[in-house]
């Protein structure tokens, strides 16, 4: 039996071991980089969420101020309730323009803080039997990240027997729901 030729065995072993270590190292590095990217993405998602929430916050304040203006407008009118309703829905003949609550909320120029191009806002007002329901949807995007939030508010309609001095805007508008749509 001839002697087995072991020439180059150590080199082969070193190369084999090294390739295994390099493969494991590369896998570890790619996992770490993926993990880091996920954390950065998480950060961007949170920022987009807070932007969308900020838009809704501002929309709520615009609605609140609008209700306050409606109260001020209606308090010296003969029919307080109808004047208040007309102001909210934009049917005030004496004010001329069609400046309803929904229109104010949809108009981006009314937003002083959030007026970036990456945000969209939509508002709808539904008439219920004894109140109105305002639904505002804000959508903020950052690349492929999109965050959509919905705010549902109830706007009360004062009764015929209520005098304007007895009520404040805080009594007339209240948040029912604040939810993440997407």
């Amino acid at each position: 039996m001839s002697k087995q030729n072991n020439k180059g065995a150590i080199m082969a072993l070193v190369l084999l071991m090294s390739s295994v270590v390099i493969a494991a190292g590369t896998a570890l590095l790619s996992t770490s980089i993926m993990n880091y990217k996920m954390k950065r993405l998480n950060s961007r998602v949170k920022r987009t969420f807070y932007s969308a929430e900020g838009v809704l916050d501002e929309a709520y304040i615009i609605a609140f101020t609008f209700v306050e203006s409606a109260l001020e407008y209606a308090c010296d009118k003969e029919n307080f309730r109808d004047a208040y309703l007309n102001f909210i829905t934009g049917n005030c003949e004496e004010l001329g323009s069609d400046n309803s609550l929904v229109k104010s909320l949809k108009d981006k120029s009314n937003y002083l803080i959030y007026k970036e191009s990456n945000m969209e806002i939509d508002a709808e007002l539904f008439n219920k039997s004894d109140c109105m329901q305002l639904e505002v949807v804000s959508c903020c995007t950052d690349g492929k990240i999109e965050k959509k939030l919905k705010l549902i508010c109830r706007i009360m309609i004062p009764g015929y027997d209520v005098s304007p001095g007895e009520i404040s805007p805080e009594d007339l508008i209240c948040i029912i729901e604040w939810k993440l749509e997407r």
Partner: peptide, 28 residues
Amino acid sequence: AVFAILFTAVSSLMLTTLKVSQSAKYQY
């Protein structure tokens, strides 16, 4: 000699992995 060269490369790879992992932790 070959092992030393590869070890240097792998150790820098490991060091980078460690730094990236730390950065991810700090970011989170």
